[in-house]
């Protein structure tokens, strides 16, 4: 198994140094993720909720439009009506919990860029048309939208922390775009 994992290469491995140099961006590679498509009222979905999230509240409550549930590392993101992205730590296998549901392992289909800190929102706003002001979008919010010219899922996990889920093939483009957008802010941190 260790041999197998050593054979992986993440879509942004080649940019890890440049991302780290900004001081507020990094790749979160190899997260497990599944796209689940079912009516949250179905019993199988209730069972899955219970299996994923401890406590009766979370188990019952698949996220509503524009929201994510979970406190990390496990989250369920609303992608559309009856459509969720379940995210977990790398290497987590959730197949058995999802048995009987249309759940597709898409762990390798996307990677995640995490932006943290006081400039994260401003950097995203250079390429994202949706309103990220705390009055409109805060911790626990998520949205499928465009960032620059890439389609992304945006998930705010904490006050100044955003995850950007991007398709693996677009990751190089989007990371380079974000690195360029971050230039002004990197200098501001330095000053």
């Amino acid at each position: 198994m260790a041999d197998l994992l050593a054979q992986r290469r993440s879509p942004l491995a080649h940019l890890a140094g440049e991302l780290a140099a900004t001081g507020f961006m990094r790749e979160l590679p190899y997260l497990s993720s599944y796209e689940v498509r079912a009516d949250p009222a179905e019993p199988a979905m209730a069972r899955l909720g219970a299996a994923l999230f401890a406590g009766p509240l979370l188990a019952a409550a698949w996220p509503t439009a524009g929201r994510a549930v979970g406190t990390g590392p496990r989250y369920a993101l609303w992608c559309g009506p009856g459509w969720y992205l379940v995210v977990d730590e790398p290497g987590t296998t959730l197949e058995s919990a999802m048995a009987g549901l249309p759940a597709v392992d898409v762990s390798a289909a996307r990677t995640v860029l995490e932006l943290t800190g006081p400039f994260a929102r401003d950097v995203l706003a250079h390429g994202c048309a949706i309103d990220l002001h705390p009055r409109a979008f805060g911790p626990g919010s998520c949205a499928q939208t465009h960032l620059a010219k890439a389609q992304v899922i945006l998930h705010q996990t904490a006050t100044a922390t955003y995850r950007v889920f991007v398709r693996a093939s677009y990751a190089d483009y989007l990371a380079r775009w974000l690195l360029d957008a971050a230039v002004e802010y990197v200098r501001r941190i330095d000053e």
Binding site: R9, P11, H14, H126, A148, K149, A150, A168, S169, Y170, D172, Y173, L174, R176, W177, D180, A181
Partner: peptide, 18 residues
């Protein structure tokens, strides 16, 4: 804006690109 040069349009890369 910054949509010029290499960033003009997304370049989609396969995992084997390099």
């Amino acid at each position: 804006g910054r949509d010029r040069g290499r960033l003009l349009d997304p370049e989609r890369r396969t995992p084997m690109h390099e």
